[in-house]
């Protein structure tokens, strides 16, 4: 293995007539590699460009923006727009910036993520290891749920939460997020637990462990990769959610995305592009950080869920 990993730099010269011996040389500039890398570089730039414009604009002053060179770097790094976006931009009637929205989003995201992942993990574990009569049908119905557009459920859910007396509260939006996370997360956990060797579960049963004991002591410690996947899916999904937040959370608990919308779409005065850009980057920061921190685990987890344990 170490031989095949040798980099091009240390490979011997491959002048015509040299008798092949040892590791095969791996020249870096082959037509295939050039094409692959140019395509990759092109698309990377293509997708990064809007981000570049956003960040650059957020550091400019309004007069500089009006100048029109949106691709130009700022003359001077200026944090005013960021400070305003965080503390004093007007989101509808109040002018407290995004900070309250940020904390609302935190209050929504953390419990929703924990509750939905926990329930889905138990679901997936029960569906694969403790099959009951109709468990396959149950699972099929659950998965079917993920194909129905959210909007269809909106009105019934409003009625249900109103009847429960929690409409317009944090609980309502947390419950709704948990419900809608269920199909995909259950699928994820079911397939992951299904990829773990069945004999492990049997061995634990012979050892006398019950439902929860096997779950907590055998299954959970082996499930870190899939938990990271679920965590990323849920945190980004719930953080980026607009619809459920605006409908169920109530005006006091509006999440960051809704407040961002209120800032950007405010009709009064001239649009402050630098503040809008700063606010947007701020809102997108949490999912971005999650990706950067756990991207490697994410890929590993997805691969583990797809192929084997």
């Amino acid at each position: 293995m170490s031989q095949t990993a040798t980099m091009a730099g240390s490979a011997p010269d491959t002048a015509v007539g040299v008798e092949p011996r040892g590791p095969r040389p791996k020249p870096f500039f082959t037509p295939t590699k050039i094409i692959i890398y140019s395509v990759l570089v092109f698309f990377t730039l293509y997708f990064l460009f809007p981000l570049y414009v956003m960040v650059v604009t957020s550091f400019k002053t309004m007069p500089e923006i009006r100048f029109g060179n949106i691709f130009a770097l700022p003359n001077q790094i200026n944090f005013d727009a960021w400070i305003k976006a965080w503390t004093s931009a007007c989101t509808g009637l109040t002018c407290e910036g995004l900070a309250p929205g940020f904390w609302n989003s935190v209050k929504i995201t953390i419990p929703s993520t924990i509750v939905s992942i926990f329930i889905a993990a138990v679901n997936g574990y029960a569906l694969i290891n403790w099959r009951f009569k109709g468990s396959e049908l149950f699972f099929a119905i659950l998965i079917f749920g993920s194909f129905i557009p959210y909007q269809v459920f909106l009105y019934p859910l409003v009625m249900i939460t109103r009847e429960m007396g929690i409409f317009g509260t944090l609980q309502a939006v947390i419950i709704v997020h948990t419900i809608f996370g269920m199909p995909i997360l259950t699928l994820l956990f079911r397939n992951y637990f299904g990829s773990l060797p069945q004999e492990l579960f049997k061995a634990a049963r012979v050892d006398g462990a019950g439902f929860w004991r096997i779950f907590f002591e055998i299954m959970l410690p082996m499930s870190l990769p899939i938990f990271v996947v679920a965590l990323i899916l849920q945190v980004t999904g719930i953080w980026n959610d607009f619809l459920f937040g605006v409908v169920f959370a109530g005006t006091k608990n509006l999440p960051m995305t809704v407040q961002l919308n209120n800032i950007v779409n405010s009709a009064q005065g001239t649009p402050e592009y630098n503040v809008n850009m700063a606010a947007t980057v701020l809102t997108g920061l949490v999912p971005l950080i999650i990706y950067f921190v756990s991207g490697k685990l994410f890929v590993r987890g997805v691969a583990a869920g797809a192929v084997k344990g």
Binding site: E199, L200, K202, A203, V206, D207, G208, R213, P221, M222
Partner: peptide, 26 residues
């Protein structure tokens, strides 16, 4: 009964000692 499986089915996160004692601890 005690059972021995083809794939060993040892609990990967536990040491050998914990593997042996798991059933007794349960």
């Amino acid at each position: 009964i005690g059972m021995v499986f083809q794939s060993y089915a040892l609990y990967p996160q536990m040491t050998v000692e914990r593997n042996l004692s798991f059933g007794l601890r349960v």
